[in-house]
Nucleic acid binder design. Structure first.
Lengths: 343, 343
DNA sequence: TTGTAAGCGTTATCAT
DNA sequence: ATGATAACGCTTACAA
């Protein structure tokens, strides 16, 4: 494969000049410039980014380790990250942790060895020794969506407390007072926070949360189904099941359907996370929407701020309640399934 | 950051020995080996993959350029590719073409410059000059899902002809003879093939396809909705709308719902591509399932065969009809929404 | 404005 | 079994 040398020879200049043209780094005559470009085209020269990176110690690449690539929340997030990164001239390498710490570490390690300029991490579960090391070494790291306690790392995430409060108030307004929550793993910050917010919201609305209404899932569909079964088997089952993420909502939906129960007549369903097809279910599912695009954008900016040594701004964005019809809302709220108040 | 030199110094050996230990490439005493490993741990040494790649001319990385990251078909595919690649010790860098040729080319170029060992491409639309060059240069390339005519590149894809035949026969058995097809872009091999297969299947079943029943979309939801509207406005609208991919099916579904029509009573709906939530809609959608996992696996194997200079096997896998209830099937076919015949 | 040459962190060849 | 050193393809002082 052709290299700078070949281009230089063909254009009758030195390799330095070729490099200068390719990076328009220093003044080059229009004429030589043209000759070089011509040679480049002629040879179909493709710069070797590996060699360039070795020399410049920068790859123009950022790593993104997501929790679970089958979770639409993360794929949307990945897309947002990708878009923003490209705008700044960076490529994104995605690693799928599959919610497994060892796989997360595999990618963190690999990406670091590949010398990504920065790393966006949606941490899986607790702090691993590797992550601790990486943080200590001061690698350019930003946490996304989730955070880890006691680690001094900027985090970009959404806060659902307000939206969860709005949801509970909404449910009470609908006359549904017995609501159960399928929480995410207590090991995940997002899991804990949503549970806390739910408890607080119920309290603020003067509603009880019997212990058996608080069940723990793992952010996968299977656990949503199992925990929903437990809830529905209760002597006094809840009037609404609120799932801590979209995959568990899906599982709960399966269980409800399998029992021949009707939504919202027999039981209501609400979900943290909004995904495109919630609007297309019958009835459309009332959900809490995270500002995924903005999350991705902010995360990239925060990371690039670190990389390029600017002051970095962590961000906490607000999630938003999207009212549809799965909790016994007035049926006149029809149409495309979008709640009012949507931008 | 620590390099081989530092490790060598600390372990009291030469850099060559360090390298040998790290790659267990040649015989090394157990004792020196231990010392080196200790030094590695002590320093938190992370090999520089960039330098290694420059030297070895291999990155243990493959590129994957998909059509649209918001399309669940492609995210599932990406995951399958990722899994198989990891099994062989390769990382995957994903590029999202967003169905735009220039963006596809952007990634093809970038990935080639990053010196990926091989490239999996789901080509967007027609042959671009870049792609032609790349093929001419003999870069290790495999087409996935889609193919391009007249280019000598191994392709791994699914063939839906048989499944489409089964679908049409199934519809006729249900007494639905007027079926319309929302095709994908004629520029895409997958678009053309499905249309051809549909025509052939209708003919084989003795059914007519009036020209106005064959409308063209672009594999995005918006076009599904618009074309469905055109079909439903027809003086004699179809009894079943068959969408050429899952996103267009979603669009069609929106339009049907917005008009207050009922599925399958007023109009039936079927889709090419099966996605998890089709089973959760009311009614569950009859669809054609592509062997996504297998597609991903085979593509990686084919690519690595090329990379490692083994004979490469292209593959054409069969898609499969999954009968649910959106086309007027007997309501006793209930349950989890999975059609019979599922493995 | 252009050229010469050093050096980025590895691996691999050739000695020892 | 181990060490010294050239080379990978590029960028960037420094010189001219």
């Amino acid at each position: 494969m052709a290299g700078v040398k070949d281009v230089a020879r063909l254009a009758g200049v030195s390799v330095a000049t070729v490099s200068r043209v390719l990076n328009d780094s220093a003044a080059v005559t229009g004429e030589t410039r043209a000759r070089v470009l011509e040679a480049v085209a002629e040879l179909g020269y493709r710069p070797n980014a590996v060699a360039r990176s070795l020399r410049t110690d920068t790859t123009r690449t950022i790593g993104l380790v997501i929790g679970d690539i089958l979770n639409p929340f993360f794929t949307e997030l990945a897309r947002a990250v990708e878009d923003e990164a490209r705008r700044s001239g960076y490529s994104v390498v995605i690693g799928n942790a599959d919610e497994r710490p060892e796989r997360q570490d595999h990618y963190v390690r690999t990406l670091l060895e590949q010398r990504v300029d920065g790393l966006l991490l949606c941490p899986t579960a607790e702090i691993t020794p590797l992550v601790r090391d990486v943080v200590r070494d001061g690698a350019p790291l930003v946490f996304l969506d989730r955070t880890l306690p006691g680690l001094d790392v900027p985090t970009v995430r959404a806060d659902g407390a307000e939206a969860i409060g709005a949801l509970v108030a909404h449910l009470r307004g609908l006359g549904r007072r017995r609501v159960a929550f399928i929480s995410g793993p207590a090991l995940l910050s997002t899991g804990r926070e949503r549970t806390e917010a739910f408890r607080a919201a119920m309290r603020a609305n003067g509603l009880e949360v019997p212990e058996e209404y608080l069940v723990a899932g793992d952010f996968r569909a299977g656990s949503g189904r199992e925990t929903a079964a437990r809830l529905l088997d209760l002597p006094r089952p809840p009037e609404v099941i609120f799932a801590g993420d979209n995959l568990m909502a899906l599982g709960a939906l399966d269980e409800i359907r399998a029992r021949g129960l009707r939504i919202p007549a027999d039981v209501g369903l609400a979900s943290y996370d909004d995904v495109p097809w919630f609007a297309h279910l019958e009835p459309p599912v009332t959900a809490i929407e995270q500002p995924v695009q903005e999350l991705g954008r902010r995360a990239v900016r925060a990371l690039l701020d670190r990389v390029e040594r600017r002051p970095v701004e962590p961000a906490v964005l607000a999630a938003r309640l999207v009212v549809r019809r799965s909790c016994g809302e007035a049926p006149e709220n029809r149409g495309d399934g979008e709640g009012s108040g949507r931008a």
